[in-house]
C-alpha cells in the first residue's frame, strides 16, 4: 500500500507525467491508424524523420537550464549550417570521410555554441539577442555557402540511414545514443548539476566558487554539439544539402522543451522530457497525415496541443510544489 502511494506520488510529482501521457496516447492513436508504423519496413523512415527533431530539442536543453533568460534560438540554423557545410564544402573537397568530417562538424557545433556562450557570459548580453544574432548569421551563411538545395551526402551518412536487425534497429539512433552518452558524461562530471545550480541562482553558484562564465560557455557549447549531431541527422534524412530547412527547427525545439516539462526560467529540468516532447510533436504530425487531414491544419493542431500541454504541466507543477505563493485574491 505504502509502495503504491509512493509510486503514485512519484508519478504525480514528476514533471514528465504530461509528456509521457501525451506520447502514449499519440502512439496508440498512430498505431491504430497505421499499424505498420513500427514494422521493420517503415520504422527506419519514421526514426530518421524523428531523429533531427529529438536532437535539436536536446540542443536547446542546456541553454534553457542555465537560466537568466537562457535560450538558444540558433540551434535550428546551426543544424542547417552543419548540413550545408558537410554537403557543400566537405564532400566537394573530398573531406567526407567519417574520421575527418564527423569531428569537423562536431567542432563547428561546439565552436558556434562556445561563441554564443562567450558573448553571453563574458559579454553579458541577453541570450535571446545573442542567439538571435547567430540565428541570422548562420542562416545567412548557409545560403551563401549553398544557394540552392543540391549535393549528395558521404557514404557513411547514407549508411546511417539504414537499419540493423531487419529494420528494427535504425542506425540513425546512433546519433541520439551519442548525444545521450555525452550528456551522461557531463552528468557524471558534475557539469549538469553545476549548470542547473547556475540556472537556479548564479550568484549563489558564483560565491560558492563555481566558475559561472565557464559553466555558461559549457552549456551553450554542449548544445552546439547536439545541434551538430542533429545536422548529421538531417543529412541522413534528406540525403543532400538544404540551406533553408534548418531554421524551422528552432521554434519546434523550444516547444519541445516546454512540452517536456522544463521550465524556461532554468534551474530545473530533464533531458528525457524534451526528447519526449519532440517525439509527441512528431507523432501529431504523423497522426494528422495518416488521418489525411489537410496539411494546413497541422499548424493549428500543433499550437493547440502545445498550449494544452504547457497548461497541464503548469497545473501539475503548481499543485505539487507546495511553495507558499503570494496569493493576492
Amino acid at each position: 500500500m505504502a509502495v503504491l502511494t509512493n509510486v503514485v506520488a512519484t508519478v504525480r510529482r514528476s514533471p514528465l507525467t504530461v509528456v509521457i501521457a501525451l506520447v502514449v496516447v499519440l502512439l496508440a492513436v498512430n498505431l491504430g491508424l497505421s499499424p505498420t508504423m513500427l514494422s521493420g519496413h517503415q520504422l527506419p523512415n519514421t526514426v530518421n524523420l524523428l531523429v533531427p527533431s529529438v536532437l535539436v530539442a536536446m540542443a536547446s536543453v542546456p541553454a534553457v537550464m542555465s537560466g537568466r533568460g537562457g535560450i538558444d534560438l540558433s540551434v535550428g540554423p546551426l543544424l542547417g549550417f552543419v548540413n550545408v557545410v558537410l554537403v557543400g564544402v566537405l564532400v566537394p573537397h573530398s573531406l567526407g570521410s567519417v574520421w575527418l568530417s564527423l569531428p569537423l562538424m562536431l567542432a563547428i557545433g561546439a565552436v558556434t555554441g562556445l561563441v554564443n556562450g562567450i558573448a553571453i557570459a563574458y559579454g553579458r548580453l541577453q541570450p535571446v539577442v545573442v542567439t538571435l544574432g547567430s540565428y541570422l548569421v548562420l542562416s545567412g551563411l548557409a545560403l551563401v555557402v549553398m544557394p540552392q538545395p543540391v549535393g549528395v551526402v558521404p557514404t557513411w551518412v547514407t549508411y546511417l540511414s539504414g537499419a540493423w536487425l531487419g529494420g528494427y534497429l535504425p542506425r540513425s539512433l546512433l546519433l541520439v545514443v551519442g548525444a545521450l552518452v555525452l550528456w551522461r558524461i557531463l552528468r557524471y562530471r558534475g557539469a549538469v548539476g553545476t549548470i542547473l545550480a547556475t540556472g537556479s541562482d548564479d550568484r549563489a553558484a558564483f560565491t560558492s566558487g563555481v566558475r559561472v562564465s565557464r559553466v555558461l560557455c559549457l552549456a551553450y557549447a554542449s548544445g552546439g554539439v547536439f545541434a551538430a549531431l542533429a545536422g548529421i541527422g538531417l543529412s541522413v534524412l534528406i540525403g543532400s544539402g538544404d540551406p533553408t530547412v534548418g531554421r524551422q527547427y528552432t521554434l519546434a525545439a523550444v516547444a519541445a522543451v516546454a512540452l517536456g516539462g522544463n521550465p524556461l526560467i532554468g534551474g530545473r529540468g530533464t533531458m528525457v522530457g524534451p526528447m519526449l516532447g519532440a517525439s509527441s510533436l512528431f507523432l501529431i504530425q504523423t497522426m494528422l497525415s495518416s488521418l489525411k487531414v489537410s496539411s494546413l491544419w497541422i499548424q493549428v493542431v500543433y499550437g493547440a496541443v502545445l498550449l494544452f500541454a504547457v497548461c497541464a504541466n503548469a497545473a501539475l507543477a503548481s499543485r505539487l510544489t507546495a511553495r507558499p505563493r503570494v496569493g493576492v485574491a
Binding site: 557524471y188 558534475g190 553545476t194 542547473l196 545550480a197 541562482d201 549563489a204 553558484a205 563555481v210 534551474g267
Partner: peptide, 28 residues
C-alpha cells in the same frame, strides 16, 4: 569562507547539492 547577508542558494536544487555547491566536479 563567507556566508553572505543575503541567503545565496540554488533554491531549485536539492539540499544535498546546495551543501556541496562549488566543490569541484570529480567523477563521483
Amino acid at each position: 569562507v563567507t556566508v553572505f547577508q543575503e541567503i545565496l542558494a540554488a533554491r531549485d536544487r536539492l539540499v544535498l547539492d546546495n551543501l556541496w555547491l562549488g566543490h569541484g566536479s570529480p567523477v563521483l
